[in-house]
């Protein structure tokens, strides 16, 4: 058998195949993460005894949930429908405003350069403040009901859709706009004949995605009083009516699942 001599000495060989430096990096991260985990747990007063106690009360509660109270269905059904309607109006409102605002936010389309930056800041803010907080604010301003829910979903949607729409407008082919401009088309004509057709697949798929998200939000908007089925969650839990609570959750599940199937189908058609 032919022998190949190791061309390096032992020390050089060890240095060559050592991963110690990489491993040290990951080890430090791991130690830090573990430390922060236990620190967080202690700051929140979560300890093993409480976890064990918590799980036993939780399993009691789950036992008390069965069987679900199907008698509630006739009352819950219209509320689920209302949630879907809130999501539809909130999404449509969000789409209309985000497309309009994106015209002014996209760097290549905006008539006033500074406006783009301000609008993008506005998008970031409306996106970062959660829908439920928006609902809380709108309730204070216009009172309980479906209107604050619709407005909350609309404003929160503007944040997300405005960002992706304006970015997709910025990414379109420069030549398309120049070509239309050279024909003497007006700003609106350029937008609707040039920009929209090029970005329509992006607009549609993100709008559908946002509708999915809004359905989830609209199912819980009611916990702060902004309409739909969410309030029933709070009501059932306050009255300790756990079979009804389970029924509410089942209705939400069916609602979310049904809408997800629909948007999934629509997405395939769009493609």
């Amino acid at each position: 058998m032919k022998k190949v001599n190791n061309p390096l000495n032992e020390k050089e060989f060890k240095a060559l195949i050592s991963k110690r430096k990489d491993n040290l990096f990951y080890l430090i991260i791991l130690i830090f993460m573990t430390f922060f985990l236990f620190f967080s747990l202690s700051q929140m007063n979560i300890n093993p005894a409480r976890v064990i106690r918590g799980f036993s009360t939780l399993s009691d509660l789950i036992k008390n949930m069965f069987p679900p109270d199907f008698g509630q269905l006739s009352r819950l059904w219209p509320l689920a429908i209302e949630s879907i309607q809130i999501a539809i109006l909130g999404t449509v409102l969000g789409i209309i405003f985000s497309i309009t605002l994106s015209m002014f936010a996209a760097k290549n389309l905006t008539p006033i350069p500074g406006l783009g930056v301000i609008l993008k800041g506005f998008f970031a803010f409306t996106r970062a403040v959660p829908a439920l907080v928006w609902a809380l604010l709108f309730i204070t301003a216009v009172g309980l009901g479906t209107l604050p829910g619709i407005l909350a979903l609309g404003v929160n949607s503007i944040g997300m859709l405005g960002k992706v729409f304006s970015e997709s407008f910025e990414n379109i082919n420069k030549a398309t706009i120049e070509g239309l401009n050279s024909t003497g088309a007006s700003r609106m004509q350029v937008f609707f004949q040039g920009v929209v057709p090029e970005t329509i697949p992006i607009i549609l798929s993100w709008s559908l995605f946002r509708f999915d998200i809004n359905i989830r939000y609209s199912s819980i908007l009611g916990v702060v009083g902004a309409g739909g089925i969410g309030w029933e969650l709070v009501r059932a839990s306050r009255m300790r009516d756990y079979p009804a609570l389970l029924m509410v959750i089942l209705v939400i599940l069916v609602m979310v699942y049904a809408v997800e199937q629909f948007t999934g189908y629509a997405r395939r058609v769009v493609r």
Binding site: K2, V4, N6, P7, F13, L16, I17
Partner: peptide, 19 residues
């Protein structure tokens, strides 16, 4: 085993590629 792996890789002219 690491040394053996290196030796076999060297016999396949891969000693510069080990790491």
């Amino acid at each position: 085993d690491k040394k053996k792996a290196f030796e076999i890789l060297a016999r396949l002219d891969l000693e510069k590629q080990v790491a």
